[in-house]
Amino acid sequence: MSQSSKYPAVEVSDLTVAYQEKPVLWDVDLEVPQGVLMAIVGPNGAGKTTMIKAILGLLTPAAGQISIFGKSYAEQRRLVGYVPQRGSVDWDFPTSVLDVVMMGKYGQLGWIRRPGSAAREAAEEALEKVGMLDYANRQISQLSGGQQQRTFLARALTQDAQIYFMDEPFQGVDATTERAIVDLLKDLRSSGKTVVAVHHDLQTVPEYFDWVMLLNVRRIASGPVPEVFTEDNLRTAYGGRVAFLSANGAAPAKEKA
């Protein structure tokens, strides 16, 4: 579990991803320092999910270098946790909540070994943290959207990672769940972990996150929220379709990302 404290959590340079000759990400640079909660925002088709997937090695970029704490993703897998989009799986799959959460341990188990009591305990602990312990044996098709999201979060927690990548963790969840998730993220930050999350709701960026990256195929800006989350940058990122955002961060209209 090597982790050199002088390296940024994530360093991306010149990342370019093309899909059938159309650029989805173009020459993107990003540096994520350790211990921040970072949001990635941008309009639809901006390449936000693609960014996460490229970092995690789920797709092959046309160009670019990616490092996690100074080394390649493949070397640092054990330090990374992943919360995919809720819609990326079929929730009618015959399995229980506990079962899904234990999948987070599969990486540490390696080949062939089945999850034992240690994995089970870790999973139950994680479920406790997200408030889903009572649902451990429930079939996942019976879960609400918020519960599904929390299940995925619990799974990521069992990965015991130093950095977490999340894809729209607040999408379609109820208010209670949203609060719970935010608290969880802030806990993670206080223990020194780093979180990078694709976020869809511009309005809550200043409240939930301390760093932000504005992305629209190219990197528009990235850095601490107060510096970077400005009207000008937003206008550039969203192409002028942004409803106005007052200086206090209160906006009457919510921009759909």
């Binding site: 897998r77 992943y82 999948m103 599969y106 062939i112 070994r113 799974r155």
Partner: peptide, 22 residues
């Protein structure tokens, strides 16, 4: 039977499994 958990992972959440290194 031997690769049960790997196949379960593949069938349920292929990308997550990929991120784990399988």
């Amino acid at each position: 039977a031997i690769f049960w958990k790997e196949f379960k992972l593949l069938s349920f959440d292929r990308e997550f499994g990929s991120s784990l290194g399988f």
